[in-house]
Design a protein around this nucleic acid. Structure first.
Lengths: 236, 236
DNA sequence: AAAATAGTGTCTTTCAGACAGTATACA
DNA sequence: TGTATACTGTCTGAAAGACACTATTTT
């Protein structure tokens, strides 16, 4: 037991030593597609795990913070800027990647509908619905897509984080445009939680929070009574 | 924008390249001392930041998972085994350590009273109370101790994580022995939240959850009516 | 007018805070 | 018997679920 000295930090460590893990960031790009919580994945074209679906990611540069690396990967690989980005968790099992020791810091990226479309305009890209526990990735045809590495675990944790935060944070609004209806907001909550919610109770709860501004405007293309558009008041 | 291929992963990366960050784990050792949420810190004896107080930490070995590295540091630097350990957050600002680029994965370690005593039996060790927002470290004499690096930020996040989880998780029990009184449990909640709680409401809320087993035993050394001892039912 | 969804009023249930009261130990 | 703390009963108020009702748009 040694708690007495500076060995708590870095002493005697050779910065050029070889036995150092690689560090990456992986992005969980989430959005609402047809009222379902969906993620954007890439299909692997080289071994290992050819054909399986993986999270976009990239190495953390030596002169780049973790947040900056995540923002760079989001911009370069998905063509998206200004999305909500938050660190999720770090994964460092020794054999999570068979090629080398890689520690990855996973980031949640919450995208609006048009950002999802932009990001999905790539090559071997798929937007999958996330369902079940642990989550599985459901492709367009309804089939389950196989996930690479430990990415099922990462996606499950991402979904669970959203569920835990949606009731007390502003994450739901990250999926929506600047002006939105209460119905659209409720759809987001229901998709994330995987349950139906009571409409009057939901309206009360959200409106009583005092964060929404009624714009007086109404949605345009409805084939029935149009709902009022609200916007989010920025933090007081 | 490149979202089409395997560049999402590791292609063309030279594992022996030099421009790689170091990776450490830092431990926030928390416990209850005199009914206050307290952390265990080490005083630095070498530059930089000599004299400031820092979290115990250590490098992640190449063949060691993050969780294993945290458990090893807990054992080797604090002499503690079997404590509740959970990953908190990863910190990777470029200049958080002036000596080199270090990414640290911070872990919460929740200790019972006797584990805190064991851990505190070192050299330049201090058990400090955490108060305020952001938290400051209050030493034995009531004076504020200066913190090293970004450790104030880490400690603040640790406290906030506890506050967020205490109402729906089992973390409070990690601070307590196997048998404990409801008063002791309420003391933990109050110390973490920094507020006083209503006693009847607290009892109802905890007991209605159905997780506590009344042992029929009572505390021993009270100079008044002794309270009943409860134990936690392991997960159903 | 019919259909569809927006939006509201209100009853009930649940649960936390408040507070006063009773119970039981030691001194 | 006094005092300190454990423990309980009950009132009140806040907030959510259920559900029926009204409102407003398009077809």
């Amino acid at each position: 037991m040694d708690i007495s000295g500076d060995t708590a930090f870095l002493k005697g460590y050779d910065p050029s030593a070889f036995d150092r893990p690689s560090v990456t960031v992986d992005l969980i790009l989430l959005g609402m597609v047809r009222h379902r919580l969906s993620a954007l994945l890439l299909q692997r074209v080289e071994p290992p795990q050819v054909g399986r679906w993986a999270l976009p990611g990239g190495f953390v540069a030596i002169d780049e913070s973790l947040d900056a690396a995540a923002a760079r990967v989001l911009r370069d690989k998905a063509g998206v800027e200004g999305a909500h980005l938050e660190q999720l968790y770090s994964f460092g099992a020794v054999n999570r990647d068979p090629r080398m020791r890689v520690i990855t810091i996973a980031y949640l990226a919450l995208l609006r509908e048009e950002q999802m479309s932009v990001a999905a305009r790539g090559g071997r890209v798929s937007v999958v619905a996330l369902e079940g526990d642990p989550v599985v990735a459901i492709g367009d045809g309804g089939a389950e897509l196989p996930l690479a590495f430990d990415h099922q675990q990462i996606l499950t944790l991402a979904r669970d984080r959203l569920r835990g935060k949606i009731d007390y944070s502003d994450i739901a609004f990250a999926f929506l445009p600047d002006r939105f209806t209460l119905r659209a907001l409720q759809d987001v909550h229901e998709a994330v939680l995987g349950t139906k919610l009571n409409k009057p109770a939901f309206r009360r709860r959200i409106l009583d929070r005092g964060r929404l501004i009624a714009t007086g405007l109404r949605e345009e293309d409805a084939s029935h009574r149009p709902a009022e558009l609200f916007s989010l008041r920025s933090i007081l």
